[in-house]
Design a binder for these strands. Structure first.
Length: 557
RNA sequence: UGGCAGGUGGUGUAAAGGUAGCACAGGAGAUUUUGGUUCUCUUAGUCAGGGUUCGAAUCCUUGCCCGCCAACCA
């Protein structure tokens, strides 16, 4: 009994365990307040989605809340364009923050904190150059050396820091540093920089400030100011934790706690904002929302749903070891979701003409076809069946291998929701290519009223040649040719997949005329496709989200 | 040769000293008017050595391997 109960429980990941322990011991009065802290210097990607699901998810699960806080301490790289896209993407994923905040909201408070540390003799103004500071920092195996400015008096430091703030110092001429330990084995404790001078216009504070706090002197204090209980970040911030705690202790502010988990890596793509920005700037992709990008906006345009992404984040788990998740898991998640939701439509991507010789010219016979067999309540739409049709080039072979269930001379197939046809003759062009396939249809074999008694192995999708709508189809494939482009030697861009995008014209059944931008469909036997945002009634454009699973192709044919 | 954090099937992730489980991927079959879906079944794993223990993925120890850290980035 006891063991059965245990089996049913989903096991907790290490952060959930920490929170449950805190709740049990009454820490923070049972309060859970997390924050999602993006820097507005790029678009959010699927790795951020993992963090978003974690931070908002923890709050949701334990009756807490989550702040959205922009870590905007570097005006040189940040912009409102990014702020807007980030807010949109978080909401699109299905999460709501209680407060929209900015580290820049705290610039005044942070300045006071710095003054406080100077007064306590724990911070000093250093006139050394960036190069000199780097040289005095030492190396991981050798201790650093004290700066000649390290022993300035409190009064002098106070005056100098004030001058920095007033814009009396040139950019790069001075910095404010914490006075900790130049011999610390942890490099981050070797008198880390707290403030630097930057004459850059900030997207929120404008020209109010010319000194800006570094990450380490902004993040922890922002957490403390907001009384964040669990400050969750990625593994590379582990060495920052002692510094995070040092500032909090010496300032005697709310003791937020930092916890670190392993960031997401995905096969056949890159996940660093720097690299993604490079792909955008160098035009290897059409923009941050190119459907090949692992960005939230790219995935959205590709046809990924919020549900599928949340589900994916759920399945990959939270742990501390480095990981490289197989792209096929993400693909599984979107297929799973779209299988339930996407309406079925027939589109021939690579047409070959079929003439039904015993079907009257000019006749149009409506064939009802289910919109989604997984959701019968979606009903049917009608496909027009006519004498001339298109089927897929690959669905016909003159000399088929055994177990080829499709069309071949003398063989019969079912046209989905319509008739069984038999291939009678192949008409060729002078260059030996196929001009058209001549078939006869079995009159009493219509779907739903089949009295032919004929059993066929294959069912093909098709469209009426006369009624089909030409549409643009963008076939997307993986962005890179190798699983882990970042770990390969040389420039990661050498490994871009030149065939990541193929644009073709396909022939769609008439019902697709009404496709709205953002709407997803299953093109029968071909895959899931999403109407592109640039699609119009005059020119329909579809992006391939993902192919269907294909056991036939997998078997090597 | 410094500090820190990790190492469980191909990929992820559970098992908190007591049956190594789940998902994806792979394989076999059944169903199917999508070679889709669904349903069965299945291959495959505790980094290595030593120790503690009745019993170790788990504790101790040594070694090996991977990652992060020396931006006026976050």
């Amino acid at each position: 009994m006891n063991t059965d109960e245990k089996k049913d429980e989903k096991s907790l990941h290490f952060i959930e365990e920490i929170v449950e322990e805190d709740l049990k011991t009454g820490k923070n009065d049972g309060r859970v307040l997390t924050r999602f802290p993006p820097e507005p210097n790029g678009y959010l990607h699927i790795g951020h989605a993992k963090s978003i699901c974690l931070n908002f998810g923890m709050a949701q699960k334990y009756g807490g809340a989550t702040n959205l806080r922009f870590d905007d301490t570097n005006p040189a790289t940040e912009d409102v364009e990014y702020v807007d896209s980030i807010k949109y993407d978080v909401q699109w994923l299905g999460f709501n923050w209680v407060q929209e905040l900015y580290a820049s909201d705290y610039f005044g408070q942070l300045y006071q904190f710095a003054v406080e540390l100077i007064k306590k003799g724990l911070a000093y103004v250093d006139d050394s150059s960036a190069e000199e500071i780097a040289a005095m920092k030492g190396t991981p195996t050798e201790p650093g050396t004290d700066s000649p400015y390290r022993s300035r008096s409190v009064e002098e430091n106070l005056a100098l820091f004030e001058e920095m703030r007033q814009g009396k110092c040139a950019e790069g001429s001075r910095v404010l540093r914490a006075k900790i330990d130049m011999a610390a084995p942890n490099m981050h404790l070797r008198d880390p920089l707290m403030y630097r001078i930057k004459y850059a216009r900030h997207h929120r504070t404008g020209d109010t400030w010319c000194i800006y706090p570094m990450y380490d002197f902004a993040h922890g204090q922002s957490d403390a100011i907001e009384k964040i209980t669990h400050s969750i970040c990625t593994l590379e911030f582990i060495p920052h934790r002692p510094l995070y705690e040092w500032f909090i202790e010496n300032l005697s502010i709310f003791p937020s706690k930092q916890y670190e988990f392993a960031r997401l890596n995905l096969t056949y793509t890159v996940m660093s904002k720097r690299k993604l920005l490079q792909l955008v700037n160098e035009k290897h992709v059409s923009g941050w929302n190119d459907p090949r990008m692992p960005t939230i906006s790219g995935l959205r345009r590709r046809g990924y749903t919020p549900e599928s992404i949340r589900n994916f984040c759920d399945r990959i788990g939270i742990a501390k070891r480095d990981n490289l998740i197989d792209m096929s898991l993400l693909e599984f998640c979107i297929r799973e979701d779209l299988n339930k939701k996407a309406l079925r439509r027939m589109v021939v991507l690579d047409p070959i003409k079929v003439v039904i010789t015993n079907f009257p010219e000019g006749k149009v016979e409506p064939c009802p076809s289910e919109n989604n067999p997984e959701a019968p309540e979606t009903g049917n739409r009608e496909m027009p069946f006519t004498r001339e049709l298109y089927i897929e080039q690959e669905d016909f072979m003159e000399n088929p291998p055994k177990k080829y269930f499709r069309l071949a001379p003398g063989q019969m197939v079912r046209l989905k929701s319509a008739y069984i046809i038999k291939c009678e003759e192949v008409i060729k062009n002078s260059d030996d290519t196929i001009q058209e396939i001549r078939c006869t249809y079995i009159e009493n074999s219509k779907s739903g009223q089949d009295e032919s008694g004929i059993n066929v192995k294959g069912t093909l999708h098709w469209v009426s040649a006369a009624e089909a709508v030409p549409v643009e189809i963008r076939l997307y494939d993986r962005l890179f040719k190798v699983e882990d482009p970042s770990s390969e030697s040389g420039d990661f861009k050498e490994y871009l997949n030149p065939e990541s995008l193929t644009v073709i014209t396909g022939y769609a059944e008439p019902a697709l005329r009404e496709a709205q931008p953002g709407e997803s469909f299953q093109f029968l036997r071909k895959g899931y496709f999403c109407t592109d945002e640039e699609s119009t009634t005059e020119k329909l454009i579809f992006n391939r989200t993902v192919t269907l699973r294909d056991n036939w192709a997998k078997s090597g044919k």
